[in-house]
Every structure is written in C-alpha cells, then in structure tokens.
C-alpha cells in the first residue's frame, strides 16, 4: 500500500537573502520607531541618558528574541481563542526574568529604570511581532525577526539618548564633556573653559524626546525617499 501521509517539507536552516532581510528590514525600511511609530512611550521615558537607554535596548532585544522564538515554537499548540493572553504571559515572564536579573546584577540601572522595565510588557513592538510574525513562522526566522526589531528599536533609543544627554547635561555615558561641572560654584580652572555651555534643561524633559524623534523621522525619510507616503 502506498504511504499517503503527507510529510511536511522541512526547510533547512540557512542564512540567505531572505533571512538577512528579516534582520536588516527593521533597522531601516521597517524601523519600529521611525516608520511604524511603535514603542514611542518608552522611547520618550528612558532616553534621558545613554546608560539607561543601553540597558533598556538590551532588555528589549532579549525579550523580543525570546518571546518571538518561544511563541513561534508553541504556535501550533497555542489555542486560537486565548493566543493573546498566552503571548502576554510569555512576554510578562521574560520581562520579570529581566527585572529580577537586573535587580541582582545591575542594581543602579534597576533603580533608575524601575517602572519602565515592567512597561516592556506593554511595548507594542514585542506584542506586534508576536502576533504578526511569530504566530506564522518557524522559530529560527522568528528569532531573527525579533533580533532585528529589538536592534531597530535600540538604535533609535541610543540616538535620541545621545542628543538628550549631550545637550541636556553635557555628558556622554555620564562622563562630562561640556558645560559647568558641579564644582562650578567653586570656579575651578576647568570650569572656566568648560563652563561656557549653558545646559538646555528642556532636553532632559520629555517633550524634547518628541522633537528629537520627530526630527529623526524626518531625517530618515529624507535619506530614504522610499518611505515617503505619496498618497
């Protein structure tokens, strides 16, 4: 008797053109922040300094990759009726893992980011990728997609944080570059030549993140005309 069982054709795991596109697309043509305008909330909140932005970016990359991979691995057994809840539980678990790990090994960052780490759960990018990509693709491709989107988000975060920290506090990664030092009142020789720059405190406040992101969106479109919406 002939074997009638349909064997699903297994594609080999490779890193070709399609896979590369999965990884690079979210960095440019399909950037979660500047093109899809997702994840804006945390981009406003944690970009006051590069250090925080870096920790946040790494955390989101981690959550994105693993949430995508796990969801994708379970995609055939997740009941359709409760799929959103299941996705949410997966994300929440990963975020809690990040939070507990930070609390144990990077306490200063944990204190500063506090509530925003928990808010990764509500980050639209993570949930969006699970629903749009991981539920329909294999774990390997999904992990690449997660990595791409995480990095795409992280890069914008770092760019915004750079401008805000540099012009708002005169620092990069907490190291003083320009502007008056805390010892300014004592008026050291150093503060005389560094002190000419008056900090723009607006850059530290949330509205400035709006301006910076808006300018980034504009610059991105000017540089990549494909993105301009002609309709």
């Amino acid at each position: 008797m002939a074997d009638v069982a349909v064997v699903e054709k297994k594609e080999a795991i490779k890193f070709g053109k399609k896979e590369r596109k999965l990884l690079t697309d979210p960095l440019d043509d399909n950037n979660p922040i500047t093109v899809q305008v997702l994840g804006i909330c945390s981009a406003l909140a944690v970009t006051t300094g590069l250090k925080n932005a870096t920790v946040m970016a790494v955390a989101v990359v981690f959550v994105c990759v693993f949430a995508n991979t796990i969801t994708s691995a379970l995609r055939k057994s997740i009941p359709k009726q409760v799929r959103m809840i299941v996705q949410l539980v997966i994300i929440a678990t990963l975020v809690t893992v990040v939070e507990l790990t930070l609390k144990a090994y990077a306490f200063e960052s944990y204190k500063q980011l506090s509530v925003f780490i928990g808010l990764i759960i509500t980050n639209c990018i993570v949930m969006g990728r699970l629903e749009a990509f991981a539920m329909a693709n294999r774990p390997y491709e999904s992990s690449l997609d997660g990595l791409g989107n995480g990095i795409g988000y992280g890069i914008i975060l770092l760019i915004v944080a750079f401008f805000r920290e540099f012009f708002g506090k005169g620092e990069i990664f907490g190291a003083k570059i320009i502007g008056a030092t805390p010892d300014y009142m004592i008026n050291t020789a150093e503060s005389a030549w560094l002190g000419w720059y008056q900090y723009n405190n607006l850059m530290v406040l949330f509205p400035s993140a709006m301006f910076v992101i808006a300018v980034l969106i504009w610059a991105h479109r000017a540089w990549n005309p494909k993105l301009v919406d002609v309709s």
């Binding site: 057994s77 009941p79 359709k80 009726q81 409760v82 299941v86």
Partner: peptide, 10 residues
C-alpha cells in the same frame, strides 16, 4: 480547540 484543551494548555 475545545474548552477542555484550552484549559489544559493554560
């Protein structure tokens, strides 16, 4: 999925 299998999964 049936309700029972959903419950089991959750």
């Amino acid at each position: 999925h049936s309700t029972a299998s959903v419950m089991r999964f959750v």
